[in-house]
């Protein structure tokens, strides 16, 4: 938690994550941001408390099966004891835990695919209603100017990028919708690594990126 986070998640994203209605790909970005941001962790916990209140008020007219307590105790007896020792932490991880879970390790274990110009990506396995990928953008490199067919969440994990919306450093998240066109540029300094989720293809304005789109798959 070196530099303060300026760009946070929106309330509708936090409520959708708390209620379990967010596509998995967006959920990964939310969980990763929350791992770095106590402000959004507290907001998310607030929305989960609403879920607790909804559960508390759920119709108690529904009855459990006659033998269900005994059946549950049998389930418990059959379960292995929960291991209380956590896996060893990398010394100074670039990726918070939820992201390491999907990658299978920290930033040094990502299976990158080159996209040209030093840009690399790795698509992570999630349900298909939205996609999420890691992007590696060399310092100073501009991403193609583009618009959005749906929502795009971009979370910075290393380095920084800038666009008309401001500067985004580690932990910052940009929430882009159909009304936004932008040209993110990786800031000078360490190369930029970000986690980006989309639920519709981007709309590239230049000719070259449009040709590249089928290969990039964004």
């Amino acid at each position: 938690m070196t530099t303060p986070i300026i760009h946070h998640l929106t309330d509708d994203l936090l409520m959708a994550h708390a209620s379990g209605s967010l596509p998995e790909a967006f959920g990964l970005v939310v969980a990763t941001h929350v791992s770095l941001c106590d402000e959004c962790r507290a907001r998310l916990a607030g929305y989960e408390a609403v879920g607790g209140a909804v559960l508390e008020d759920a119709d108690p007219g529904v009855a459990m099966a006659e033998d269900s307590l005994a059946a549950t105790l049998r389930l418990i007896a059959d379960m292995p004891e929960e291991a209380r020792i956590a896996a060893p932490e990398p010394a100074a991880p670039v990726f918070p835990m939820p992201l390491r879970d999907y990658v299978g390790g920290d930033a040094d274990t990502v299976q990158w695919r080159a996209l040209g110009g030093g840009v690399r990506q790795a698509v992570l396995p999630t349900a298909r209603d939205a996609t999420v990928r890691l992007l590696y953008i060399p310092a100073g490199m501009a991403m193609p100017d583009h618009g959005h067919g749906g929502m795009e969440l971009t979370l910075v994990l290393q380095g920084a990028f800038e666009d008309a919306g401001g500067r985004y450093g580690r932990g910052d998240v940009e929430v882009a919708g159909e009304d936004l066109d932008h040209t993110p540029v990786a800031a000078p300094g360490p190369d930029c690594i970000c986690l980006a989720a989309t639920d519709a293809p981007l709309k590239f304005h230049g000719l070259l990126p449009r040709l590249a789109q089928p290969f990039i798959g964004i």
Binding site: L13, A16, S21, V50, G51, V54
Partner: peptide, 18 residues
């Protein structure tokens, strides 16, 4: 919270006293 609304249908301004 029953999972019936998509994230697009969830209004940002819920008026919940959080």
């Amino acid at each position: 919270y029953f999972g019936e609304l998509s994230h697009r249908e969830i209004a940002a301004e819920t008026g919940l006293p959080l």
